[in-house]
Structures are given as structure tokens and as C-alpha cells.
Design a binder for these strands. Structure first.
Lengths: 139, 139
DNA sequence: CTCAATAGTTGATGATGTCAACTATTGATT
DNA sequence: AATCAATAGTTGACATCATCAACTATTGAG
């Protein structure tokens, strides 16, 4: 018994293709801000004013906790994030953006969300449809 | 003169979000096949029966040529790809999949293109629309 | 109070990625 | 034909990414 029809497979295949295409762009974009792709991902996940425990970060990144330690070490040494011991549980350390980190994050999101020219080939109606569909995909 | 309207920006933002969500899945999926994310990308780019020069690979991956050397060294030592000197230009080496490599690649694509459950939430009509839109985005 | 479980760090190791320097080959200019 | 800059790929040095195992500190259940 098949869960997804041929159209779902086609769509997914295209999304995977899109994913690999983007994967190649990220290092260049990151380098311009003197970040690595992994650091971009971390910065992307720490929302301003919403500190996040390191453990949750490891979970979202699907990587080992010790990897997060190193990643954060480097970001912290550049003054982009800071570790704050949690009041509720003294084992956990919450990561917060410094003002400098928040500015860099904003710049990063800004650069990343400049749509490529190909998006301009779609009509406004198609763009809206795409938004609707993707929103349901990600919810 | 405006290049992209607000809808294009929204759409792109969602695609970026999708990208980061997928990025976290890849290492797990790759590990099941005893591959790294980078190796998945390489394998994805070498189509069976269509050898590709190492330089082109570096270009597509947007990374240094020396990086490709190491990447290919490891894949070759596992018998997944082989370097073939080009007849036309003895400087270039074309990468081809071995039968074993082709099988692993097929397995990889198979696993990657299993649509996530969220795609099933879309109607078939929406799926078709998504396919149409993405196809134009990637062409 | 004890003790297993959890959050994070450390150290060892391998993979990824860059850069600079190198070899071999190519192709254009003289 | 001889030269020489440009190109394809490799090598070595080095930083980063990522895993694992072992460790410390803290928590929470019994």
C-alpha cells in the first residue's frame, strides 16, 4: 500500500533538487559574513529575545551535544552569542544573541531571503499559491 | 523598479525554512548508508553512465578543487567511483560510478525521495500545482 | 540519602573545507 | 619549433565540523 501518489513523489523530488542546489549556495553566502554553513544554521535557530537551551539546539540540528559546545564556543568568542545559566535548572545553559549577534543574524536572513531571479518568472498568483502550499508543508 | 514583490519574498522565506529543516535530516539519512552529507551530494551529482570531470564537480559544489580530491579519494577507496583519465585532455579526470556506486546512489535517491507525511496533506491538485511551480523555479 | 538520569564539557579521532605550492598538460604567441 | 601563461588535479598545512567515550555537576525519584 502506497502512502503517496506519483504527484507527491514528483514534488518531493523537485524539492530535494532544490535543496541540493541551495546547499551549494550557502557556503558562499556564509563566507561573505565570515560564517560557516553550520554557524549560519545555529544563528538562524536562535531568535532574538528567545534564548534556547543548548540541548534543544543539538536536537534541532540532529547532532551530538559536544558538537554544539564547539560551535557555540566559536560564536561566543566572536561575541555573537552568550551562554546564560538557567535559573530553573542549573545544568542547562540558554543561548542568547548579543546585540552584535542579532545584527549579524538579521543581515544573514536578509541575504538569504533575497529571492533568486527565477522566482520572478512566476506570476503573483503563482507566488501566492506557492506560499499557501509551502505553509501547509511546514506547519 | 521592483524585482520581487512581497509574495516572492514570502515564498522564498518558506523555501529557506524548508532548506534548513531538510539540512538537519540529511546527516541521519546519510549515516544509514554510511555516507556523509558531502558524499551524498557528490553521489547525487554523478549520474550513472555520465562521467563528470572533477573540476565541474568542484564548480557545482562551489568548493575548492583540493576538497574534491579528498572527497573522491574516500569514495574511490570504498569502490563507489573511479577516476578515468580523459582521452581528449590528459589533465582532466572524469569520475564515473562503479556498479556498486550506482546501486548505492539509487538507494540514496530512493530514500531521499520518500515524501514526508506532510506532503500527503496536500490535495493531488495542489501537489500538481507545486510540481509545475517548482519545475519553473529550477529550470 | 542514594543513585540513575540529564545537560554540558573535554579529549581523541576522522571528515570537511580552505589556501598556497607543486606537477603535468595544454594551447597560444612568438 | 620553443616558450610560457593558463588549466586540472594533487599535496601538505591548518581550521572547522562532527562523532564517540569519559567526565563533572545537577536534578529528581525512591
Amino acid at each position: 500500500m502506497k502512502h503517496s501518489g506519483p504527484d507527491a513523489c514528483d514534488a518531493w523530488q523537485l524539492l530535494v533538487q532544490f535543496f541540493f542546489a541551495q546547499r551549494a549556495h550557502l557556503p558562499l553566502l556564509a563566507a561573505e559574513l565570515e560564517l560557516s554553513p553550520a554557524q549560519c544554521h545555529v544563528l538562524h535557530l536562535i531568535e532574538p529575545g528567545r534564548p534556547i537551551p543548548m540541548g534543544r539546539l543539538a536536537e534541532t540540528l540532529a547532532c551530538d551535544a559536544s558538537n554544539v559546545t564547539g560551535l557555540v564556543d566559536r560564536l561566543e568568542s566572536r561575541g555573537l552569542v552568550c551562554r546564560r545559566p538557567s535559573a530553573a535548572d542549573r545544568r542547562v545553559k540558554a543561548l542568547a544573541l548579543t546585540p552584535k549577534g542579532a545584527r549579524l543574524r538579521a543581515l544573514l536572513l536578509d541575504r538569504m531571503t533575497v529571492p533568486p531571479v527565477t522566482l520572478g518568472r512566476l506570476s503573483v498568483q503563482e507566488q501566492r499559491r506557492l506560499v499557501q502550499i509551502l505553509a501547509r508543508l511546514l506547519e
